[in-house]
Design a protein around this nucleic acid. Sequence first.
DNA 1: CTGATTTAAATCGCTTACGATTAATTCCTG
DNA 2: CAGGAATTAATCGTAAGCGATTTAAATCAG
Lengths: 156, 156
Amino acid sequence: MKRSDKPAADGPNGPRLADFLCFAIYSANLAYGRAYQPILKELGLTYPQYITVVALWEEDDQTVSGLGEKLFLESNTLTPILKKLEGMGYLTRRRDPADERQVRVSLTDAGRRLREKGLGMNLVAASGLKPDEFSRMQKGIANLRDNLIRHAQAED
Amino acid sequence: MKRSDKPAADGPNGPRLADFLCFAIYSANLAYGRAYQPILKELGLTYPQYITVVALWEEDDQTVSGLGEKLFLESNTLTPILKKLEGMGYLTRRRDPADERQVRVSLTDAGRRLREKGLGMNLVAASGLKPDEFSRMQKGIANLRDNLIRHAQAED
DNA sequence: CTGATTTAAATCGCTTACGATTAATTCCTG
DNA sequence: CAGGAATTAATCGTAAGCGATTTAAATCAG
């Protein structure tokens, strides 16, 4: 039976960190955070705040749970982020009159304007990947993610 | 000039989340956390605590900064994790007599015993990847990470 | 040798991430 | 239609992650 998150043979002291796929993802995520940071600092946004805004560019007036599905986050994480963005004037939150349980999130003009301001960031270059490699890796990781989510959901 | 973290053409409402490599990594990291969680809960460890222990299996008696280099973390993040693991009895922290600025971290017997206990986790299957794909993706992402780190360091 | 500089770890404040719970609303079923 | 079940956000506590600062020790320069 395969042990741990790696198919390679274990070293004499057990599995090696460098062979873990989970650790590659974990550390790449940290690295992305650091690569994005100087750009996002200019906008005054954190990375989670930024992707929340991007998700709203794609589709405005979403519910918290709808947004959460796209971002893979739940209300306990998302609510504070949305409140922060609301405080900065980039979006509004209001109960849906048709179903008062739901909160609908909409961009303000300022939130839409971020689209023009922000994205002068060329992190494709920083990845060191050619466009076709970039695209293939992006799809491969998204597919991995979906498999993991399916696996986690089958657990319970 | 390429905009954002994606080489694909933008949609009518700007870049699409589904085309971001950074978002694939970000969400895959969340997914891994959820996939690992039932296994780690049995051990009573969090994921960062777990990889810290794995790094110490590979090389015992490391300094905080040495460990941090391998885990891509700094003392501000690592110190609380190490204190927690020390409190659980899995490692010891002591100032290096030869250089009192440094703290050397060593596994206890209990920490080494985790190696036998823990790793009955077959997340290779959960990834949905064949061993060669798994290995290729692991290397590709580690390479991406290293490029991003280099890029971030060139910034300052 | 002494005072400035550098280095290592720790501390603090703030923002995620998430399990568990709660409050409010809607729905379902008898 | 009444009362319990289900759904949606929000809240709370805990643990990362990280920028900025602090403390202590070692090193360096004059």
